[in-house]
Amino acid sequence: METFLSLLFFLGIIVVVVGAILFFIDYAQKRNKKKSLIIIGVGIIMGIVSLGGISLIDQHNAAIAEAQQQKIAKLKKEKNKKFKDTASEYLAEYYIIFGKAEDLGNTINKSWGDSIENSSADYDVDKVLDAIEAKNSSKITTITDGQSQLDTYLTTLKKNDTGKYNLKTYETANDRMSTLTTMVTSISGSYSSFGTDFSNADDAVSKSFKAISSTY
């Protein structure tokens, strides 16, 4: 439509120019100027109509652009609120699961160490670990469910990320927590390696907890 109106405007200019030329010819030859004046008038009307149409289209487009900007701003505001609300829930769950995973890790470390001190010649580490997991099955279930909830919260954070908050901090925190929860709910390795790995994973989660806590 704008292209058509632009062509109509330039055509109007041409008509006005042609009308003006005819007007001066009629004037010079002292002829009736009515036809040339009509042509000039038609050209002017074409110009006015085209400019008016272009102006209306520009106003319409500006209104649409403003409405879109308002919609985008509203959506961004809603996403920021959802991110902040979810981040608060994430932090609370993170604190709870951190405590439970840390407690279970310490229990595993102590139980495993005690079993080694009281071991006999037929010591079977797999049986020991199975027994430890069986004894702490309810704690393991709670921690596993908690990690799943953290994963769900993180998915929501990703969907509502507008760049206002540091999503990477939560992604790193979740990776670190996942490492810790996997370690204490699915025991593997040797006693010495478990102690070292657990300590490192626990320290990493502690750092991430401080990092996400500082965003409030």
Rank of each mutant, 00 (worst) to 15 (best):
S138I: 12
K76T: 10
N109I: 06
D126F: 15
V128K: 02
I57T: 13
I143P: 09
L75N: 04
S120M: 13
D145S: 12
A73F: 00
I48P: 01
A131H: 00
D103M: 15
D145E: 07
Y95V: 15
N136R: 01
W112P: 13
A63P: 11
H60M: 06
G146D: 06
M46A: 03
V128R: 03
A101K: 10
Y123W: 03
G41S: 15
S148P: 08
N106T: 11
N80V: 00
K82L: 00
F83N: 04
D85K: 01
L75V: 03
T86S: 02
A28P: 13
W112C: 11
D130I: 01
K76G: 01
K135Q: 09
L150G: 07
K35V: 14
I116K: 02
N109L: 14
I54V: 11
I64G: 13
A134P: 00
N106W: 13
I132W: 01
E78F: 08
I132E: 02
A134R: 00
E102Q: 11
I143E: 04
K81I: 14
T142W: 05
I38Y: 12
S120Y: 14
I72V: 07
R31S: 11
I143Y: 09
A101T: 15
Q29R: 15
I64R: 10
E117H: 04
A134Y: 04
F83R: 06
G146Y: 07
K34F: 15
A65F: 09
K82P: 01
T155L: 03
V128H: 00
D151E: 08
E117C: 03
G43M: 05
D103L: 15
K33S: 11
L91Q: 07
N106P: 03
D122L: 06
A63Q: 10
D103H: 13
E102N: 14
I38G: 08
I64N: 12
L104K: 03
Q59P: 05
G43P: 06
N61I: 12
T142E: 09
D126C: 04
G47Q: 13
E102V: 10
D85G: 01
T156A: 05
I96T: 15
S138R: 07
Q69E: 06
E66C: 05
N32H: 11
I140E: 00
S111T: 08
K35L: 11
F24M: 14
L157K: 06
F24C: 11
A101Y: 08
S36F: 06
D124Y: 05
G47S: 10
H60A: 15
I97P: 09
I97N: 08
K71Y: 07
L150T: 12
N136G: 11
I45N: 00
F98G: 12
A73K: 04
I97D: 02
L150H: 07
K139N: 11
S36V: 04
Y123Q: 00
I45D: 01
S36P: 04
N136P: 03
E78L: 10
T144Y: 06
Q70P: 02
D130R: 08
Y90M: 03
E102G: 12
D124V: 14
D151H: 05
Q29N: 15
K30Q: 14
I38R: 11
N106D: 10
T107Q: 09
G41I: 04
G47N: 06
A73I: 00
